[in-house]
């Protein structure tokens, strides 16, 4: 058995996914380079990976989120970026976890972003009056039509 000597001890790595109509992964990277001080930033097709001390990563991630909070999603990663053990080129195929991300990003995130936008439009009082649906998963939401969606519908009518 070969000894294992870990690297990046004490660091955290976070994935920052962006699924936005207005910003690209490059915009995100640009911002990250501006605000990061000595953090490792790796640009990927879906966004970024940020590695460094937990506090620093937390600070940068908060700053990145503010670009487009409803379309940026963050998650912890066990490995540092570019680790050969998880690299597609070395494995021959994607690691299994990739497909889980692919599913959430392609099939679910657009609806979650919509949900975030609608909730963003509610004030504290409206939100606190919402009730969980008894015996059913989820929340009872009144028929709210958010401004953005209303505008989209109106634009569509005009075509």
């Amino acid at each position: 058995m070969n000894p294992y000597v870990p690297a990046f001890i004490g660091t955290v790595t976070k994935y920052v996914f962006i699924e936005s109509p207005e910003y690209t992964p490059s915009d995100l990277a640009l911002r990250a380079y501006e605000v990061s001080e000595g953090l490792m930033i790796k640009e990927t097709c879906f966004g970024l990976q940020v590695t460094g001390s937990p506090d620093e990563v937390g600070r940068v991630v908060t700053s990145l989120r503010s670009i487009d909070p409803n379309h940026i999603f963050v998650k912890d990663r066990g490995f540092p970026p570019g680790d050969p053990r998880r690299c597609r080129a070395n494995l021959g195929g994607a690691r299994p976890g990739y497909y889980g991300h692919e599913f959430e990003v392609s099939s679910v995130i657009p609806y979650v972003s919509h949900g975030l936008e609608v909730l963003e439009g509610m004030d504290e009082k409206e939100f606190s009056e919402l009730e969980m649906m008894p015996g059913k998963p989820g929340l009872r939401i009144p028929d709210v039509l958010d401004v953005k969606r209303l505008k989209e519908l109106m634009d569509a009518e005009e075509l």
Binding site: Y111, V112, H114, G115, V118, L119, L130, M132, G138, L139
Partner: peptide, 23 residues
């Protein structure tokens, strides 16, 4: 424990996100 299903349309997206925030 909060039980949910993945949202399959925009309306369910609102319910999903709202339920988590509320919980």
């Amino acid at each position: 424990v909060l039980d949910l299903t993945y949202p399959k349309n925009e309306e369910e997206g609102v319910v999903f996100v709202g339920a988590i925030r509320k919980f």
